[in-house]
Design a protein around this nucleic acid. Structure first.
Length: 152
DNA sequence: GCCAACGTTGGC
DNA sequence: GCCAACGTTGGC
């Protein structure tokens, strides 16, 4: 069982949106980065736990926990010319992009902000706080997972 | 295969 | 809104 962190802009899709979906589950579409795709396609397994991170907002940080509810399948939004994430290079018989489904577990009691995460030496090699990191999906080690939960 | 130009991410 | 840090694209 592995731990992950997934970024989303709350203006587009936040933790409350996930909690409000039928079955509190939603597909994580729109990832158009190969590294992030590979993690979803090859490594994320049902039951893996995920920190839900809000980016590009007033208080960027970890706001909740989700779990992987369905393992990778083609991101069909890539096939739709009207979709924001349309990619003409991806074909249904040979998809370029994949996604997983995530299910709401719980919100944290408070937002553990990026600013706060950066202040702990224990998290110095957490991918999220490393310089220039732009990955929207990243692994979190069990030690980092426990430490961060301990901050709550 | 190199690399400049361009587009995107995302903190601040 | 600014801009640093990347990733991608495309000319050569």
């Amino acid at each position: 069982m592995q731990y992950w962190l997934m970024k989303s802009e709350p203006d587009a899709f936040g933790i409350d949106d996930l909690a409000g979906r039928p079955g509190q589950t939603e597909h994580w579409d729109g990832v158009r980065n190969y590294q992030a795709r590979n993690m979803m396609r090859d490594e994320m397994k049902i039951g893996d736990l995920v920190f839900f991170y809000h980016s590009n907002c007033e208080l960027p940080g970890i706001v909740g926990i989700a779990e992987v509810a369905r393992e990778s399948y083609p991101d069909f939004t890539a096939f739709n010319p009207d979709d924001k994430h349309f990619d003409p290079k991806s074909h249904p018989d040979k998809p370029t992009w994949y996604m997983v489904d995530v299910k709401f577990v719980r919100k944290l009691q408070r937002t553990i902000s990026l600013r706060e995460l950066k202040q702990h030496a224990e998290l110095a090699d957490l991918a999220l706080v490393r310089r220039g990191n732009r990955l929207s999906i990243m692994p979190v080690s069990p030690a980092h997972w426990e430490f961060i939960l301990g901050l709550e």
